[in-house]
Design a protein around this nucleic acid. Structure first.
Length: 456
DNA sequence: TGTTCATGG
DNA sequence: TATCCATGAACA
C-alpha cells in the first residue's frame, strides 16, 4: 500500500507535505510573547544599570566613549585581554589572531572577574528576546506562526527552517526553553505531541557500514554504547556510570568520534567535563578523585590523552572495526569516482572533505526517514478524515496538534508508519527503528510536554 | 559583506 | 589529518 519513493519523488512529495505543514501553522500565545518581551527588556536594562556601577564597565566606557556598545565582542575582548591583561584561553577561527570571548571562555575567566557571569546571563536573555521572541512576533499572523520548511538549501539533502527557524528553539537550557516554548500552544482544546526517532543517525550509519557490534548495540536493549564508552574513557566499571557520566561519554567522545574528531580534542573535553559537571560515580566517589587514584597513568592531562588515544584506537580497530574499515573504503571510493551516493536516491559530488564523505550520506538518509514518515502520516491523517494536524518538523521529529479524541488513532498511525511501513518501503534499513513520544496536557504549552509511556 | 556568537539536530 | 549540518542577530 505504501509506494517506495526515490530521489526526486521524495523531494516532490516532501515539498507538498511540508507546504501543508506551513499552511497549518502553529498556535502562538501572543499576549505571552508581548509581555515576555517587555519583561526581558526590563531585566536587561536593570542588569545594565547594575553593571554600569562596576569599575570594569566604567573603564570600558572611558576607553570607548560614545562608541561603547554592550554587544561588541571586539570591545569586550580588548578590555579583557589588553586593558585588564587577562591571559587568553582560546582563539577565534581566524588563525589565532583574536582571543575568544565566547561562553566557555567567559565562564573560565569568571573566577577572576565575577561580573562576567552577569554578561553571560545578559547574553542569554538578549538571545531569547532578539532572536526568538522578536522573530515569533514578527512572523505571527492572526495568532498563528507559519515557519518555512525548506528542502533545497542543505548540502546533505536535509531540510532547513526559516522565518523563523523552528528547528533551533531553545531546550537544552531549561530557563531559555521555558521562556520560548511557553509561547507555543495547541489549538484550543487540543494537545501538542512530538514524535522523534531515537538514535536515527546511529541506526542509519549502521545500514551503510553494517558493523556487527554496532548492530548488536542497536538491537539488544540491555546493551548501551554510550554507557560502555563513558566507562572506558573514565576507567570505571559500568555500574559506576551515572546518567551524567554517560552524557559526557556520548557528547565528548562517541559523537565527536563519529563525526571525525580525534583523541586530543576528545580528551580535553572529557577532562574538562569532570570539573565543570562535577562528575560523581554511583557510589559517591568523585570522578576527579577516581582519576587521581590512577596516578601512575592518569595524573596529568597528557597521560589522560595517551589513555584516550588507546580508547580511540580500540574503538575504531577493535570494537567497531567494520565501521572503521567502511570509512576508509568509502573515502577511497569517493576519490576514485568523485561522488558518493545516498541510499535514498541522491548524489553528493564536488570537492568534499574527508569527514563529509562519511557524514553526508548518513545525515541525509536519516532525515529522509523522517521526511518519508511525515509524507505518509500526513496522507493517512487526511485519508482517515482526522482533524489532527502536523505543525512542524525538526530533523528527526514530527510535531502534531492533536485532537484528544483522535489520540489513540493518531498514535497507531504514527507508530506503524515510522517503525513498520518504512522498513517495507526501504529494505536497506536493516535495523529496527524506534520512536519516543512526548505530549502536553490539553491547552498546555510546548514547554510542558512529558514523556508518554509505551502502553498509551 | 564577513566574522563571531548562540541556538538546535 | 584533526567535529557534521543549519539560521539569525549584532557588529565592524
Amino acid at each position: 500500500m505504501v509506494a517506495a519513493l526515490h530521489g526526486y519523488g521524495l523531494i516532490h512529495e516532501g515539498w507538498q507535505a511540508l507546504a501543508d505543514v506551513e499552511e497549518n501553522g502553529i498556535h502562538i500565545d501572543l499576549d505571552y510573547v508581548e509581555t515576555t518581551i517587555l519583561k526581558l527588556d526590563n531585566r536587561i536594562n536593570t542588569m545594565r544599570s547594575r553593571l554600569d556601577n562596576t569599575k570594569f564597565v566604567k573603564k570600558w566606557r572611558g576607553v570607548y566613549g560614545h562608541k561603547f556598545k554592550w554587544d561588541s565582542d571586539e570591545q569586550l575582548g580588548d578590555m579583557l585581554y589588553n586593558e585588564m591583561g587577562l591571559e587568553p584561553i582560546k582563539y577565534t577561527n581566524d588563525g589565532g589572531h583574536t582571543p575568544s570571548v565566547d561562553h566557555e571562555t567567559l565562564e573560565l575567566l569568571s573566577p577572576k572577574l565575577p561580573l562576567l557571569k552577569g554578561f553571560l546571563k545578559m547574553r542569554k536573555m538578549s538571545k531569547c528576546k532578539d532572536t526568538y521572541l522578536a522573530g515569533i512576533l514578527r512572523e505571527t499572523v492572526d495568532e498563528y506562526l507559519h515557519p518555512f520548511f525548506n528542502l533545497h538549501t542543505v548540502a546533505t539533502f536535509r531540510s532547513s527552517s526559516s522565518k523563523p527557524n523552528f528547528q533551533n528553539m531553545p531546550i537544552r537550557d531549561k530557563m531559555q526553553g521555558e521562556l520560548i516554548r511557553r509561547a507555543f500552544i495547541p489549538r484550543p482544546g487540543r494537545m501538542l505531541m512530538e514524535v522523534d526517532y531515537s538514535g536515527i543517525e546511529v541506526c542509519i550509519a549502521a545500514c551503510y557500514h553494517k558493523d556487527p557490534n554496532m548492530i548488536a548495540y542497536i538491537k539488544d536493549p540491555t546493551k548501551d554504547m554510550h554507557r560502555d564508552m563513558a566507562a572506558q574513557c573514565y576507567k570505571l566499571p559500568t555500574e559506576e556510570v551515572t546518567s551524567d557520566i554517560r552524557y559526557c561519554g556520548k557528547n565528548c567522545f562517541v559523537f565527536p568520534q563519529f563525526y571525525g574528531d580525534w583523541f586530543k580534542s576528545c580528551a580535553g573535553a572529557l577532562w574538562a567535563s569532570v570539573d565543570t559537571r562535577e562528575l560523581v560515580c554511583t557510589d559517591g566517589t568523585k570522578v576527579r578523585d577516581h582519576l587521581g587514584s590512577h596516578t601512575i597513568n592518569l595524573d596529568t592531562l597528557k597521560k589522560f590523552e595517551d589513555h584516550i588515544e588507546m580508547v580511540e584506537d580500540d574503538f575504531w580497530n577493535n570494537r567497531f572495526a567494520v565501521y572503521g574499515q567502511w570509512k576508509e573504503d568509502h573515502y577511497d571510493e569517493y576519490l576514485r569516482r568523485g561522488y558518493v551516493d545516498i541510499k535514498t536516491g541522491f548524489r553528493c559530488g564536488g570537492i568534499m572533505q574527508r569527514n563529509d564523505v562519511s557524514n553526508y550520506p548518513v545525515q541525509g538518509a536519516a532525515f529522509h526517514c523522517l521526511l518519508w514518515s511525515l509524507i505518509q502520516v500526513n496522507k493517512e491523517l487526511k485519508a482517515a478524515g482526522l482533524s489532527t494536524l502536523i505543525v512542524g518538523q525538526i530533523h528527526d521529529s514530527i510535531v502534531l496538534d492533536v485532537v484528544p479524541e483522535e489520540l489513540e488513532q493518531v498514535l497507531a498511525i504514527v507508530r506503524r508508519v515510522m517503525c513498520v511501513e518504512i522498513r517495507k518501503a526501504w529494505p536497506w534499513i536493516i535495523v529496527p527503528l524506534d520512536v519516543d513520544v512526548e505530549i502536553t496536557d490539553i491547552d498546555a504549552s510546548w514547554f510542558e510536554k512529558k514523556k508518554m509511556g509505551r502502553a498509551a
